[in-house]
Design a protein around this nucleic acid. Structure first.
Length: 497
RNA sequence: GGCCCCGUCGUCUAGAGGCCCAGGACGCCGCCCUCUCAAGGCGGUAGCGCCGGUUCGAAUCCGGUCGGGGCUACCA
């Protein structure tokens, strides 16, 4: 154990989005690289927005990704509980101690009063003005007589806060730019500015890697950490902080959860692999070095150092995610691919939820045909639909039919039927051979013209896995049935050309 | 407004003073392969925001400027 302790601390207020995942991935990789401990903590103090469903979703999705945590919910650890909603007593006690020791004080000013004071002084600065720091007892009792309830504010030191950001280098905030901040609401409810550093301190976190949006909150947290240590509430060195660049969506907007790929749940539903998601996200703000960009999470962890983390924001690019995901799909062992494809076939109504052995066997045979061409599992599943659909539900895409199943298709289908019906051995090679002879050679059709009507008649689409293999897998009876049915739809043979 | 962060092809990045008239990947364009779509192969397109300075020499160091972003809650 290196002593390094890193945490990922999401708020369970919805689906994890790519920014969260990227942070989790970097936290995880850093902890693993350092031989440290990866802690998962759920920041669910906001009861209005936190949900149990989201909480379970976070755990489920991290597991799906394979970002395993050493301490946290459902795993335990020495410093739990790891859900902030189970730590109210701790926060109240710490708040009381801070208050008692003078690190925090009760503040009665309303927002309007602060603004009014600043306006009167011609001061355009925003934010709290530290007015209640040294209230006289007369002022205090006056407020109390009004029935006002105070918030608890942390008393910031009167010196600049300077820290060495793990990613950005030295960052400095002058004292006048960091006003005293609220630790607990008037009703005693502990807030993020208190709870987050307290847990980091109590959980002995040594390295905080988080989003850049939290950079400005660091100068508030450092003095609080120091206070916790001087009071003996925590010990050990102050944590180091590193602020990760944003992941942006279209334009320069932060990626919205609704945008494509915004949430992990949507990526998962769209058939992206954890391997693909992780590898792609690793590229957003980190480089393994040189020209390499394909690697496993384990390889990433082995190579992960903070000096390779980028300081500038990155845009999420679905196209590249697709490419990487496609590569990861191709890298899967065939049976693994088939196994992962199965739930998507079921979800899309292509497979019954309890497929037969014959169907499973067919899937094993058909999967390689789509593994080499699909970018996502959903695409792969859809490409296989024609193979598993029950005959009376088989339909032909109208656009595809309009394109190649017109009158000129009649002789093609007739010729195909003629040679296929008599085919003794139903193999892709044989099918190709007789169709080639009958359509390309005898009818003198270009291959794409010859096979177009056959493909649409058999697969229902102009886009399909390789035709002859598809026909072999479909089987002779079903293939011929579909060809006859398509042929029948075109009426009796015209004299034409 | 104040404070803070950031600035290499459209996008993700390599680059830590000469190896760079800037490399890779995605995208895009073209070609090859080809039964469709992909995959694959080959080639092309495109960038150091700007201005000063330091230096024999700067994408790399410094200053300024412009631009983008974040924070500025009794949310997290």
């Amino acid at each position: 154990m290196s002593g390094v302790r890193v945490r990922f601390a999401p708020s369970p207020t919805g689906d994890l989005h790519v920014g969260n995942i990227r942070t989790a991935l970097f936290d995880w990789a850093f902890a693993r690289h350092e031989g440290g401990v990866f802690v998962l903590r759920l920041e669910d103090t906001d009861q209005a927005r936190s949900t149990e469903q989201s909480y379970r979703g976070v755990l489920d999705e991290l597991r799906w990704l394979g970002l395993d945590w050493d301490e946290g919910p459902e795993v335990g650890g020495l410093y739990g509980p790891y859900r902030q909603s189970e730590r109210w007593d701790i926060y109240r006690e710490v708040a009381a101690k801070l208050h008692e020791a003078g690190y925090a004080y009760e503040s009665y000013s309303t927002d309007a009063e602060v603004r009014a004071r600043r306006a009167a002084a011609g001061d355009k600065t925003q934010g709290y003005d530290n007015f209640d720091r040294e209230l006289t007892s007369a002022q205090l009792s006056a407020y109390q007589a009004e029935g006002r309830k105070p918030v608890l504010r942390f008393r910031m030191p009167d010196e600049p806060v300077v820290f060495d950001d793990l990613i950005r280098g030295e960052v400095r905030f002058e004292a006048e730019h960091v006003p005293d901040f609220v630790l607990a609401r008037a009703d005693g409810f502990p807030l993020y500015p208190l709870v987050n550093p307290v847990d980091d301190a109590l959980m002995r976190i040594t390295h905080v890697l988080r989003g850049e949006d939290l950079l400005a909150s660091t100068p508030r947290q450092l003095p609080l950490h120091a206070a916790l240590r001087s009071l003996g509430i925590a010990d050990g060195p102050l944590p180091r902080f590193g602020h990760l660049p944003f992941v942006l969506g279209e334009g320069n907007a932060k990626l919205s959860k609704r945008a494509f790929g915004g949430s992990l749940a949507s990526m998962r539903a769209d058939g992206y692999l954890p391997e693909g998601v992780l590898n792609y996200l690793a590229l957003l703000g980190w480089s393994i070095g040189g020209d390499r960009e394909l690697f496993t999470p384990q390889e990433m962890a082995a190579a992960f150092t903070l000096d390779k983390v980028s300081r500038n924001p990155a845009h999420f690019d679905v196209k590249k995610l697709r490419v990487i995901n496609g590569i990861k799909i191709r890298e899967l062992a065939p049976d693994d691919f088939a196994k992962r494809l199965l739930p998507f076939l079921v979800r899309r109504g292509i497979f019954a939820s309890s497929p037969t052995d014959a169907q499973l066997e067919l899937l094993t045979q058909a999967a390689p045909l789509v593994q080499e061409r699909a970018a996502t599992l959903v695409e792969a599943a859809d490409l296989l639909r024609f193979l598993f659909v029950v005959e009376h539900h088989f339909t032909i895409d109208p656009a595809a039919a309009a394109k190649v199943l017109g009158v000129p298709a009649v002789p093609v289908l007739d010729a195909a039927l003629a040679v296929l019906e008599g085919l003794p051995e139903w193999t892709a090679t044989n099918i190709q051979e007789v169709l080639q002879a009958a359509l390309v050679e005898t009818l003198e059709l270009k291959p794409r013209v010859a096979y177009g009507p056959v493909r649409v008649a058999v697969t229902g689409s102009t886009v399909s896995p390789p035709l002859f293999e598809s026909m072999e897998l479909l089987g002779k009876d079903r293939t011929l049935g579909r060809l006859r049915s398509a042929r029948a739809g075109l009426g009796s043979a015209p004299a034409m050309g």
